[in-house]
Amino acid sequence: MVSRDIPSLTMLSKTAVDAPTPIPSAGDALIRCKGLCKSFGELTVIHDLDLTIPAGTCFGLLGPNGAGKSTTLRMILGQSPPSDGVLEVFGKDIRHHGRDIRARTGVVPQADTLDPDFSVIENITIYARYFGLRPDVMQHEIDELLNLVELSDRRHSRVSTLSGGMKRRLTIARALVNDPELLVLDEPTTGLDPQARHLVWALIHGLKRSGKTIILTTHYLEEAERLCDNLVLIDHGHVVARGTTKELIATHCEKTVLEIRNTLDPLQKQTIQNAATRLEYSGDTTYAYADDPTTLTTAIDRLGLEQVLHRQANLEDVFLRLTGRDIRD
């Protein structure tokens, strides 16, 4: 389905014609960066980033707004030259092989970049041409893609008549037209309703099962927990934590949380503080953390507090603990 060797009519510059690279087997690093830095003038947005993303896994890049997630993705796609460090995708240096790397990659960008003048199917066929593919001989593949994203009955609709969820699915179908080995998803479910989000999650699960390597950014930590095998949390361009969801919770957070919505007087606050490992406040809510919640629940029962939610610690607790509760814009 994919023609990798796009004939080059380069007139002014020499192009590196690559020997066909073997498809990496599971476990091989598909993306490897070491000491990766990115600065814009004086401002450094990525500091000394080390990442290894094994083939066939789903990797989550988390962090508050402005942490450097999108910049990292842009560097991986060769759309932003690194200021320093090593960045290899498919074992190739991004500085010299951006085009070859993008030929084997599918991208779902954060913003809608569909062509509003075209219909659903035209958006896919014209995109195939950008890869040097011939859409006229891949009707079958295109039909399959439309089936996959459940847009077969809308194939001739104009993009402007599609809902947000449909546009997102079309963008995913478009990203798959070159049968990519690597998928880069930049906030794939932002702005979608729960139905549309679940459909996109199911799609991503299916793609993962079919052996594709996925790198995704998201603000929904539930999404990261569901989809990602490995996560890295970055803030201000630095890695602040990495590991699986379980590892991150085990390393950076107590096991249980009690969310107390009652307004507490100083005495109550003191009692809870004594029973908990750690307290945090956000608005009217007090978050009490503890590995063993027995003392804490006893204390709260004794105080007669009613608006209490007892739950297990999740990725969001880790995220907020490591990046703070201040608003980022």
């Binding site: 009519l9 510059s13 075209f118 014209i126 950008y130």
Partner: peptide
């Protein structure tokens, strides 16, 4: 940091031309 400086003329430009042509044909 090494960057390619001289402009490139490649047949991929035709895909961009074709996109615009198809839009024009619609309108």
């Amino acid at each position: 940091m090494k960057r390619r400086r001289q402009p490139l003329i490649r047949h991929q430009a035709l895909a961009v031309w074709q996109r615009n042509f198809l839009v024009w044909r619609k309108l």
